[in-house]
Every structure is written in C-alpha cells, then in structure tokens.
Design a protein around this nucleic acid. Structure first.
Length: 296
DNA sequence: GGCCAGGTTCGCT
DNA sequence: AGCGAACATGGC
C-alpha cells in the first residue's frame, strides 16, 4: 500500500543497524529466519518497485515448500513488514501538528514493522528495559546466538528467535550466562516457562480490545506500562500505543517542543492526546528519527 | 573511573 | 498511594 519506502521500513526493522533480533537488512535484502507452524524458513525480501508503486519480491527456502506454506510465509512477511496499511489517515491527522510535520515529511513511506510473534516482541522488550539501546542490541544478539536455531547460507550464519521451550530449559542460570541481571533472567525464564507449559497463550491476546489487552499484559510479571504500550505497537499492530514514560521519547519531545526542562511523563501523555488515535505512528516516527540521527 | 541508560518490582513510610 | 532502592553491564 503506497507510499511504502522499503529501504526505510526495513532499516527501521533492524533499528538502522544490519541486524536486530532475527531481522537482517543490508541495504538491499531484508532477510529473516522465520519460525512458522513449527517449521523454519529462510526468507529474503527485496524491492522491485518504487515508493509510490511498491512491489516486493520474496524468496523462501525451507524443507516444506508448497502452495500452502508459501502463502502462510508470505502473509507473515506482510505482517512483519506491514505492507497493507494505508498511512494517509495518519498523514492527514499529523498535518495539523507543526511539531511533527518536518519529521514525518522526512520519513515518508515508513511503515511500522511488527515482530514475528508476541513472544519474540515480549522477550526483546524486556531485554530493552531500562538499559540503553546499544546494550539491548548486544543482549538480543547474545540471546539469539546462544539459544536460537542456526541456519547457514552462502557463508553467512542466521539465527531464528529462540523457542519458549529452549529458554525455559535454559532457566535463570542459562540466561544469567549471557550477562542478563537476575531480574531480567527471572522475568524471561518465568514467561518462557509459562508459555512452554501452555499456561500463557500470548497469541490469543490478539482478540482483545486495546484496554483489555493492556490489563492482561500488565498481569505478566516483568511487564509494566512501557512494555505493554510497546507491545501494542510492535506485536499487536494497534494504532494508538504510546509509552509515555519512555526516556528517549520524553527527551525527543522535549527537544521537539523546544522545552528547556525535561518534560515529565504526565506532560508528555497530556500533550499526546492530540495525536489520538495515531500515537503508534507518532512513537515510531520519533524513534526512527532518533535512530537515523535526525534528532538528539 | 564514575555516571547513566528506550523500566519493573518490592519494601518501606 | 507514593517514593526510593536494587538490579548489573557496557559505553561514553
């Protein structure tokens, strides 16, 4: 759905690095080792269109390639790369907001990429709590390298996201081994255990309203307001997630609004009311601006 | 070297 | 209910 800037969107999926989580982007090919229905597929996507006439080409490698699995993988990649959302309602709404106009114009065609699974989004979010983004990246790399499934292709090595059962088996000690503190190791191990034992069905939360979804997420130990709002955006594809206590977001808005003193979370939340119901986009565009160096 | 980082929980008033 | 401490590691 145009406008769709494949390069920008894929770069955002890896936080403007080569790799983030199990997503890879080298400037041309978006690559991912994808877990789907207990199978693993190596997928490669690149653009053969333009921003205004987007067209993506997908290559799939795996043991069980047929019409059905090809359709399922294509659909999942469409979710991950958000190929079907129409951005124009957001662009129309934001045109009323001088604060955001320059920033959004700079990032035209950026879509919100999603995590392959809620589990993946949740674990990555917990890894990213409190610490800076470079450390979060290091942690996710260690986690995947240690506990993900390996796949070699053309001299390159790829990893899929670790399964809940693997992380449950690793336990707190196995997670502390990759330099996580006891708290994070504890959160992740207990979530992985609950998922592995079918006590926690994260995917079933897709059916809930935003409000009930947040309540369910907050019930999970290790999930606070920031993580719940972040998952709304990245793992549930909702339009109005807003982690108003996020330190980087607060600093960015303090700069954008030309405030002298650091805004308080409550002030950020109050100001954001004008962006309802598009705050997932606002958040995504601000973070993209930060990561691409347009904003400090 | 010290200070701080894209939070969350727990224990204490 | 509201506040502060602990968490532990890497980067600047």
């Amino acid at each position: 759905m145009p406008p769709y800037d494949f390069c920008l969107t894929a770069a955002a999926a890896v936080n403007f690095r080569v790799q983030h989580g199990t997503n890879f982007f080298d400037g041309t090919y978006f690559k991912k080792l994808l877990n789907l229905d207990n199978q693993t597929y190596f997928t490669r996507v690149h653009s053969i269109g333009t921003i205004d006439h987007p067209q993506l080409q997908i290559e799939i490698t795996g043991n069980t390639i047929n019409d059905q699995s090809t359709g399922a993988v294509t659909e999942r990649l469409s979710w991950i790369l958000d190929t079907t959302t129409d951005l124009s309602p957001f662009y129309q709404a934001v045109a009323q907001s001088p604060t955001l106009v320059p920033l959004v114009n700079n990032l035209k065609g950026l879509h919100i990429t999603h995590t392959n699974s809620v589990f993946e989004g949740l674990i990555l979010a917990i890894l990213g709590q409190q610490i800076n983004s470079k450390m979060a990246h290091t942690f996710s790399y260690h986690l995947i390298e240690t506990y993900g499934q390996i796949f070699k292709m053309g001299g390159d090595v790829y990893y899929s996201f670790p399964k809940a059962t693997t992380l449950a088996d690793a336990g707190i000690n196995g997670l502390k081994a990759i330099k996580l503190n006891r708290q994070k190791a504890d959160y992740i191990a207990s979530i992985a255990c609950a998922v592995a034992l079918n006590q926690l069905d994260l995917e079933s939360l897709h059916n809930k309203s935003d409000e009930k979804l947040v309540i369910s997420l907050l019930n999970i130990r290790g999930v606070g307001l920031w993580t719940a709002q972040w998952l709304l955006i990245k793992s549930f594809g909702r339009n109005d997630g807003f982690p108003h206590n996020d330190l980087a977001l607060i600093r960015a808005l303090t700069t954008l609004l030309k405030e002298k003193d650091l805004l308080k979370p409550e002030q950020v939340l109050k100001h954001s009311q004008r962006w309802i119901p598009f705050r997932s986009y606002v958040t995504t565009y601000i973070f993209a601006a930060i990561r691409s160096g347009c904003l400090n």
